[in-house]
Amino acid sequence: MEETFGVDERNSDDLAYLSVRGELDLAAAPTLREHLYAAVDRSSGPLIVDLLAVTFIDSTALGVLIGTQERCAERGIELRLVLEDARIIKIFEITGLTELFTMSPTVTEAAAR
């Protein structure tokens, strides 16, 4: 079956950047977790997770993001999410997660925070 999601990574001295695309569901969650946790372990500065190209997100993927946030907090790293699609933001709102995450509408804004 065709891959319905993907992750690209980029690192600099100051911050780590992950761009996630496609559908974040039960099938994607293990790989997503692998990438995010590895990025946290490598990071010394803020971790930016770009969700602009995400078209679907469910509770399983939200659980992965919560786990990533906790891992970041344990290591003193700031997790910054980038998202602007109203459909995706709505899922964060109805699950009460907007307070948990730092969110920006663009990567530039996330990097400048």
């Binding site: 469910d58 509770s59 939200l62 659980g63 919560i66 786990g67 906790e70 109805i94 699950t95 009460g96």
Partner: peptide, 9 residues
């Protein structure tokens, strides 16, 4: 991480 509760919400 409370995924079940997230599903219900």
């Amino acid at each position: 991480y409370g995924e079940r509760e997230l599903s219900i919400r």
